[in-house]
Nucleic acid binder design. Structure first.
Length: 291
DNA sequence: AGGGGGACCTGTGCGC
DNA sequence: TGCGCACAGGTCCCCC
């Protein structure tokens, strides 16, 4: 569940189970995910309180009373589940109970209050690590990240500036986490479609109104996806059925051969969405609308 | 510099 | 039914 809106959805779902609660047990069922877990990780987690659960780009950051931060990345296939009897559920709360293969339950946290938070990740591209919260500004994963799409720093003028002189294609430039934090393959395709910019356009030529359109498209598609609870590409749904329906709103991603809904509002282009491969990944776009 | 290819892993869906 | 292949939301590293 990996791009920004999905990670944000996970964060909101985990808050009632984790925030303000002490970790009373931590079980690591293997020594690594994508990377080895840090030394004594279970001991360093046990007994400390989760003061707050933050997100930066696609990272979840659990602020611990110990002065450390637990940094978590879901990779391609990482998921959290919560089992709890006593957590008050509100409409729209994240409740995750999919059929997950328990062989891939790699980390299990017992929280004060009775909740069990389980991290499941078949492909193990995700990872977890601990760092001193005070050292965050120089953390190698976090320091290079560009602005969040909803931050004041992120704007058309900003994009035009960072793209200036870049020869890379628009698709690659937007996937670069140093440019803007949190976009992945899906939302890059969607944002470029909305902005009517070709994924093959040289980033350096995106300025002025085009850059403004792109910034607005990125901001809006991310905001709408968060509002929808993210996108769910596989077979799971929240117990209340409310989790992750943004995939039904895709205009480009996964729509190869289907009619373009028309980037110009109401005009209806109708030409088929095309697929191409850039940097080994599928790009979906409308060759007629996107220039 | 930028992009292609491969790597890391497992699961799923499709064509034959 | 079974097999093999393509492909999957992320990222890193080597190579040209």
């Amino acid at each position: 569940m990996p791009e920004l809106p999905e990670v944000e959805t996970v964060r909101r779902g985990l808050i009632p189970a984790m925030e303000g609660r002490r970790i009373i047990g931590a079980e690591l069922r293997r020594k690594d995910l994508r990377f080895a877990f840090p030394a004594r990780m279970a001991e360093r987690l046990t007994g400390t309180r989760v003061e707050r659960l933050d997100r930066r780009a696609k990272y979840l950051l659990a602020r611990l009373g110990s002065g450390e931060t637990l940094l978590m990345h879901l990779g391609m296939s990482g998921r959290f589940s919560i089992t709890a009897d006593d957590i008050a559920r509100q409409p729209g709360d994240f409740v995750y109970a999919p059929p997950a293969n328990p062989a891939h339950d790699h980390v299990v946290l017992q929280l004060e209050g009775g909740a069990t938070v389980t991290y499941n990740d078949p492909r193990r591209f995700g990872f977890m690590t601990l760092f001193e919260t005070a050292q965050e500004a120089s953390h190698p994963f976090l320091a290079p990240l560009g602005p969040e799409p909803d931050s004041n720093r992120f704007s058309g003028a900003y994009l035009a500036e960072v793209f200036s002189g870049r020869k890379s294609r628009a698709k690659a430039a937007l996937l670069d986490q140093r440019v803007v934090a949190g976009l992945g393959n899906i939302y890059v395709c969607e944002a470029l479609w909305r902005a009517r910019i070709s994924p093959r356009r040289q980033a350096g030529t995106i300025k002025g109104v085009r850059a403004e359109r792109l910034a607005v498209a990125v901001r809006n598609v991310i905001a709408e996806a968060i509002e929808a609870g993210g996108s769910t590409l596989r077979d799971y749904a929240g117990a209340d059925g409310a989790l992750g329906y943004f995939q039904h709103c895709f205009d480009a991603y996964g729509r190869e051969g289907e009619a373009c809904r028309g980037a110009m509002a109401g005009k209806g282009c109708g030409k088929p969405i095309a697929r191409l491969v850039q940097q080994g990944r599928s790009t979906f776009y409308c060759p007629a609308c996107q220039r």
